[in-house]
Design a protein around this nucleic acid. Structure first.
Length: 250
DNA sequence: TCCGTGACGGTTGAC
DNA sequence: AGGTCAACCGTCACG
């Protein structure tokens, strides 16, 4: 069962072991740092360990994102991007192809050897989860950008520890920056949490501009179009996350 | 006193 | 369905 209350650290702050700090606190840490407050003072003020403050600020400086990384999961052992790509190709060339036929072709084409050849059920899963969503409309978002995140994710933990967009993978076209929560280092002039959290307007603009990208991208090939769609979707998700934090800063 | 770093115990989710 | 494993988390202690 999920703990209703966290533990208390040396500074008297409450935390839940293994779980990220709430977005509002992460945001506050970055905000205070932007104001020139020393990390040690941020640590004391927010009752968060200085190691944590250090980590969050380092991550922010490196990626521009305040969000924690994706927790859990494991590296694909057989369903590597190369394998998925080949399966997608086979399926596109022959939509009626069977999973066992794909399996044979992966082996015959040297994509896999007998040790890392996916099972028929694995191939079926790939077809269902990754290839099956190749439908033109919203294919990227539904099948790849958020393979297991519902459009309006239920709070996975409790309101204090929700971070709904945390599992959104970085789509192609946004390689270095986990842009799902990137702040772009643009900060409102006001210093209150409310105003800091009011950066929705920024992300809305980002979303709109990305939508414009989508409309322009039609001539630039399917890859570009998908990337632009993904960015627009990312920006909208960011706005949603921030709105949620804004409504419930705790 | 401040801060970077790594060990630690914990959670999570794809496989 | 349930176990495994590797990713992540924040705290703490050390230098």
């Amino acid at each position: 069962m999920e703990p209703a209350f966290g533990e208390v650290n040396q500074l008297g702050g409450v935390f839940v072991n293994g779980r990220p700090l709430p977005n509002a606190i992460r945001l506050r840490i970055v905000e205070l740092a932007q104001l020139g407050i020393r990390p040690c003072d941020i640590s004391r003020q927010l009752r968060v360990s200085h190691g944590c403050v250090s980590k969050i600020l380092a991550r922010y400086n490196e990626t521009g994102s305040i969000l924690p990384g994706a927790i859990g999961g494991s590296k694909p052992r057989v369903t590597t991007p190369t394998v998925v790509k080949h399966i997608r190709t086979y399926k596109q060339r022959d939509p009626g192809i069977f999973a066992w036929e794909i399996r044979d072709r992966l082996l015959a084409d040297g994509v896999c050897d007998k040790f890392n050849l996916p099972s028929v059920s694995s191939i079926s899963r790939i077809l269902r989860n990754k290839i099956g969503s190749l439908a033109p409309q919203g294919a990227y978002d539904a099948g790849k950008a958020a393979p297991h995140a519902p459009p309006q994710p239920a709070l996975p933990y409790n309101h204090l520890y929700s971070y709904p967009a945390s599992k959104v993978p970085t789509p192609p076209g946004m390689p270095a920056l986990p842009g799902h929560m990137a702040m772009h280092r643009i900060w409102p002039s006001s210093h209150s949490v409310t105003d800091i959290l009011g950066i929705r307007s920024i992300t809305e603009q980002q979303s709109k501009s990305c939508c414009a990208c989508v409309s322009r991208a039609g001539e630039e090939g399917q890859e570009e179009l998908q990337g632009a769609r993904a960015r627009a979707s990312q920006a909208r998700r960011t706005a949603d996350v921030l709105e949620k934090v804004k409504r419930d800063p705790a």
